[in-house]
Every structure is written in structure tokens, then in C-alpha cells.
Simulated scan of single mutants.
Amino acid sequence: MNSTTKIIGLLGHPVKHSFSPDIHNYLFEKYNQNSAYCCFDVEEDKLKEGVEGIKALGIKGCNVTIPHKVNIITHLDNIDKNAKLIGAVNTVKNEKGNLKGYNTDGSGFVKAILSKGYDLENKKIMIIGAGGACRSIAVELASKGVLSIEIRNRSINKASEIVRTIENNFSTRILCSTEIIKENDLDDIDILINTTPIGMETDLCPISESISLSKDILVCDIVYKPHNTAFIKWAKRNELEVIYGIDMLINQALHAFYIWTGIEPSKEDEECIKNLYKKTIE
């Protein structure tokens, strides 16, 4: 690091669990970028000041995580077309003092599924949660031709907003509910996705672990710490296929790196980052 080192960071609360510094500092070193990635723990009532700090300090860009992905939009100068449709931002680029927001979550999540050899066309999806991650994932899934999406969330307002977005832009059937997931609710579902932070560094599970399934469904968790969340463990006990949170995290991070630098990371980078992650959980 020297006087010309550029800072890129993560805005969220909490951020102490984040693996993003490992990903991006690896990429900066490999591609000879004089940049460093730092985490900034910004509480909800300090978001405006946090974004102003990006401009004041000349920070090159940032990732955005829970709970700021939706609210940060009002503090940015421009929003990418896809992020505007989604209504959530997870990546910001500082272009000479002009802050532009992007969303790489949905594409990162879908890439994780497709790279495992799964077909999304005409699939029936259930998503737990209705935050910024749900928004981006739902929009990306609808654009890939899934048949239906059902959102389960504790409150109806945010879920209803996502329903309206999908209904106004895609042919995918979508509905939402505040009901707790019961066993028979999953009888007609192909893919079950947790987009809440439930399970992050805890043993909590977003559904009842007493639910037992005989049907094969794909279970996906966007939480990556711990690697085997309670949700993933539940899926494995039911002998279900799983997609881990780290797969989405890496994919969205590689896209964000490209936005900031114009450099397209290689497949080799993806494998190297996965190996770095494995060392952190051993």
C-alpha cells in the first residue's frame, strides 16, 4: 500500500463475518491492482453519512449487504437498469464522484444453479424472505423462465412490492404469504431458497427442522457462514441436493470486481477463491 492505493469496501451491519475481503484482496493482488478491500460497519441510521463518505474520501467503490441494499438507492446518483428493476443494489462504483449502483446478486445466484447442471425453465420456486437478495433473485429467476415463485415472509408489504415488480415485467406466476412453511407446502416445489440472514453464525433454521420430505427438491441457502447452515443440514438429513451460500457470494463478487476494474476473472480464480474459503472453515 502507498499514497496511490485505492480503497474499495463493504457497507453493511454487521460485517465482521464477511469473506469478501479475502476474495477481492486476492483478485487485486493477482491482477496487480493497487487497491485494498475493507469492511465498514454502518448502522441503518448512518447510511446517508456512510455514502457521503465514499465521495468525500474518494473510495473507488463498494459492495452493499444487509440491511442497506434497498435503502442505499436513494443516496446514489445513478442506478443501472437491472438494479432499478430489482429495486436493490449490492455494488457501487464511484465514477469521478458520481456513484452508480448495480446488482450482481441475482445473476450470481442463478450462475451457481446453472453451473451445477440444473435447468430453471418451468420450475416452481419458493423463496424465504423478502429483502434485497430476494428481490434480485426473484427478478433473475423470472427472466430465466421459471413457471412460478412463491415468497414467504413475516411481513407482507415488502413481499407485495416484489410481487408487483414480477407481475409488471414477466409472465412468471407469483404470490406471497406470511404463513409459516408446513410440510405439504413443499409438495409442489422444485427449488427452495433461503434469502434471510437466519442461520448466519447461529444454529437457527428458517423453517421447522421437523419437516420431512420424500420428494426431491433443490435447497439453496445464501448464508455462507457457517458453510453447513442449519438449513443445509436439514436438507442433507432429507437427502436433498443443495447449493451453498459461498457459490453465490463468489459469483456476485467476480462480477463486482469486473464492474470496478474492467477485468474479467478466470475460472481458475473461482477455484482458487473456493480453496481460500475452505481453509477458513477447516
Rank of each mutant, 00 (worst) to 15 (best):
E201K: 15
D221R: 06
N194Q: 13
I211M: 12
T165H: 00
I222S: 06
C205D: 08
N168V: 04
N169V: 09
T196N: 11
K225C: 06
S214P: 05
I193P: 09
S177H: 10
S171R: 04
M200A: 09
E201Y: 03
V223I: 15
T172S: 08
Y224D: 07
I217H: 09
C205S: 15
S210G: 11
L192F: 11
E183C: 07
I174R: 03
C220A: 15
D216A: 07
F170G: 00
Y224L: 11
T165N: 00
E183L: 04
G199W: 01
D216P: 12
D185H: 14
F170M: 07
Y224P: 08
Y224G: 14
S171K: 14
I166R: 03
E209R: 14
N194P: 02
C176T: 07
I211Q: 12
T202S: 15
E209F: 02
L218G: 06
N184Y: 09
D203Q: 07
I191L: 08
D216H: 11
I217L: 14
D187M: 11
S212H: 13
Y224A: 12
P197C: 10
I211V: 06
G199R: 05
S212T: 12
L213A: 03
S177K: 06
I174W: 02
T196A: 10
D188K: 13
F170E: 04
D190E: 03
D221V: 01
I191C: 02
I181S: 05
S210L: 13
D203E: 15
K225W: 07
K215Q: 10
L218F: 04
C176G: 05
T165S: 08
E209N: 09
C205T: 04
P206L: 11
S171N: 14
T172A: 00
I193S: 10
I189P: 01
P197N: 10
L213F: 10
T195P: 03
E167G: 01
M200S: 06
D185I: 03
E167N: 12
N168A: 09
N169Q: 06
T178E: 15
I207K: 05
D187R: 03
S177V: 02
T202E: 01
I180D: 09
T165Y: 01
S171W: 00
M200Q: 13
S214N: 13
D190F: 08
Y224W: 02
C220G: 10
L186Q: 11
L186V: 06
T195Q: 05
N168G: 01
I198E: 12
I222H: 10
I189D: 01
I207S: 11
T165G: 00
I174T: 06
K182N: 13
I207M: 05
